[in-house]
Design a protein around this nucleic acid. Sequence first.
DNA 1: CCGGGGCCTGACGGGGTGTCAGATAGCCTC
DNA 2: GAGGCTATCTGACACCCCGTCAGGCCCCGG
Lengths: 229, 229
Amino acid sequence: MASRPTEDDEGLLDEEEPRAADGRRPGRRGRATRQRLLDCTATMLNSSSYRELKVVDIAREAGTSPATFYQYFADVESAVVVLAEEMAAQGRRFAEHVRASSWRGKKGYAASEALVDEIIDFWEEHRSVLRVVDLATDEGDGRFANVRTHLLNDLNNALAQVIEEMTAGGRLPTAVEAQATAGVLVAMLAHVSAHRYGFEFWGVRTADLRTAMARIVYWSVSGQKPPTT
Amino acid sequence: MASRPTEDDEGLLDEEEPRAADGRRPGRRGRATRQRLLDCTATMLNSSSYRELKVVDIAREAGTSPATFYQYFADVESAVVVLAEEMAAQGRRFAEHVRASSWRGKKGYAASEALVDEIIDFWEEHRSVLRVVDLATDEGDGRFANVRTHLLNDLNNALAQVIEEMTAGGRLPTAVEAQATAGVLVAMLAHVSAHRYGFEFWGVRTADLRTAMARIVYWSVSGQKPPTT
DNA sequence: CCGGGGCCTGACGGGGTGTCAGATAGCCTC
DNA sequence: GAGGCTATCTGACACCCCGTCAGGCCCCGG
């Protein structure tokens, strides 16, 4: 039943606290500039690789100087972290979805398909930011790892909980470790969703990936064969 | 039955062709220097992050100058590609293993466990290089994507073939698309293996991940519940 | 209309990259 | 065993981006 540890959220003190480099609380003009910088960052993330994203370029795009950028963000990644956090906040629904669904029989399989769809769509919508999150996380950047956790942790625990219940109900063998299974499923969902285009390139259709994953999720959670349609 | 397309391997013309910057074929001394550079790159990859790997440092470590490095490699990544290719050559065994195994009954589950173990071990052994391969691939670097493909493609096709056979034999519903299922399984195996330590950090044991994955692989391939031990 | 603090920037030192032209080392020939 | 040729190495340099200041601009409140 081990639940993932969670770090202290200093972010809860104030809604948002976009502090400037010297600790000042920016006024109206400052916040506008900050937002402009953020928007440009998001835009440029769509058109260029994350590695090529230079402070100079963002600043120029926003019609300001590099020095101004550093007044609001410690580096490029800090700006992207903000974008990532905004995105992650929208990811809560996955877990809610899992908890609200019935996981038995045809309904269970439908829930599985719906979950997979939701995740694939989410990754599609936020792909440029998520790509950076994955990259930076793999590179060992704790800030991004934290965001990624917030995004996936709820889903992970929700799935684990369902699996626990199924095990307790005798539907799954006691040998299955709920957290491990949930973790593997989440990893699969996130990774495959992130690499849709890679698969498409190799001639594997997203629709088939979706079915393959839905089947695995359903079987892993319920212990039953998915209904063949 | 769509098989992944494969790129032309110009590498087959000559065993290895470590050409210098100006197209010369290096002599004995040159090859020794090149190898020294390569060894230092591998060493430093273990102790520092890939992003921090500077040409200057590698050169200094190898007791030579940066300019010399550029005589053998276009950039740091080019050197790592060579290391990655050497590693990938060892990954052939996964596919052989899949093809040589029986995938039914207890033997099938044992094969599944063995495959998972083999992959986890491989990722452990080559983790520093594989981390770069994953990172650079995600970043869109074609050279690394190519290596990654060579490494996983065989396994993917081998699994897909087994799944096809199972489908033909009526053991799996015809709705399952072999390549998609194989792709999802490979993605899961590679991604979870690459993030073992992440899971351990969250209190999920590798042994449990292994079981969870072995069960999913076995079920996906054979359509049967894994034997409960 | 006149401070003064919030906001911006020009200018700079630092460190890494990639490329020369020229120095050096190894090897073969006579 | 000296000359000469090529392979190999390197110091020096121009470039680029980073991140930081000190100082200047702008705007609002009084």
